[in-house]
Design a protein around this nucleic acid. Sequence first.
DNA 1: TCTGGGGTCCTAGGACCC
DNA 2: TCTGGGGTCCTAGGACCC
Length: 401
Amino acid sequence: MQQPDRWIAHLDMDAFYASVELLRYPQLRGEAVVIGGRRADAPRQLEDGSWRYSKLRDYTGRGVVTTSTYAARDLGVFSAMGLMKAALRAPDAILLPADFDSYRKYSRLFKAAVAEVAPVIEDRGIDEIYIDLSDVPGVRDAVGHDPLGGVKAVAREIKNSVGRATGLTCSIGITPNKLLSKIASELDKPDGISVLTLDDIPTRIWPLAVRKINGIGPKAGDRLLSIGIATVGDIAAASPAWLVEQFGESYGNWLHNASHGRDSRPVVTHSEPVSISRETTFERDLHAVHDRVLLGAIMDELCESLARDLARKRYAGKTVGIKLRFEGFVTVTRDQTVRAAIASAADIRHAVGLCLKRVKFDKRLRLMGVRIGNLVHAGEALAAAPPRAEPMPAPDNLNLF
DNA sequence: TCTGGGGTCCTAGGACCC
DNA sequence: TCTGGGGTCCTAGGACCC
């Protein structure tokens, strides 16, 4: 076996949101349960102590499946599917609203439990992480005699630690790099461990569908299929020059390297946010003139939420952006960069007004969002920026809607 | 039966400066 | 006088991910 220079793990919590809900409602274990929808769909406890749950068949309106239990997946209900479509497939599935505070709590718990075993961790969202195991004693000391055994023992230790801390299971893939580990963690899900070396690529990776590669999404997947490429092995068999011809210099070369399992990205243990945003989809499409007052109030609220997020995280930003989604799912964005970093709801709302002026409102709206980028730490913003660098907002800018 | 909310990164054109 | 190349910032859109 070729000795890898790194051992990188990808850890993915199994059906994370749904599994956290099952800790609270253990009587639902084994049932088809779907997370999504509104707060009003929360279970109610009856006087006799029994619980009353919402069923998917009773759901009407917008919304998507956030996660589903494995029993619900067996019925064809998956993440990001519209709830109305899911209701057709699994009308008797139980619907629970998402409780992100609870998921964040369990997220902190499982990451702390992993850190006790292996501290070099890259956050990849609420339910997954990369871990560099190269310098973990049980891995490092096994190099030379039984590397695979050492790696597997550490993986079991991590899973036990996560289980003790949360009562939840996870799946772990361990390989020489992040790209392969991300794929490997899915090979034996749920509650599995998969260890792969570069020698395993032809047998374990090449037979997989191209969409299993992190970075090949719906568009690239369709395009690859349309030119006769269905598996990772098909990409590996194609010439790099041809891939570059089809997909451009950058993506073509990346596809070639990915299909051969090459990836040198490090595990990044700290990163700063690039932007912070808030958005909301309406229950019904709204008219820019007819529903002007309502839209204005919603935009005020979005700006206030964003300002609270900025204050809590101690950031200010120089570029404010709006996102508008019209009926027909057509999305439009506008950006406005101001001279000095801002953080207050009023300053954000003013910049939003400038953005809104540059949009043509000829269709109904289904979504509005506000984003702030070009972030600086709040302390630095105060030190660097003279107060009142921006003029007071003109009254008409505040009332575009 | 239309498709949530929070993000990151890339591309490409134009402005502006040297 | 009609013409270069490079660097950076801003903006808009889009792909992708969890």
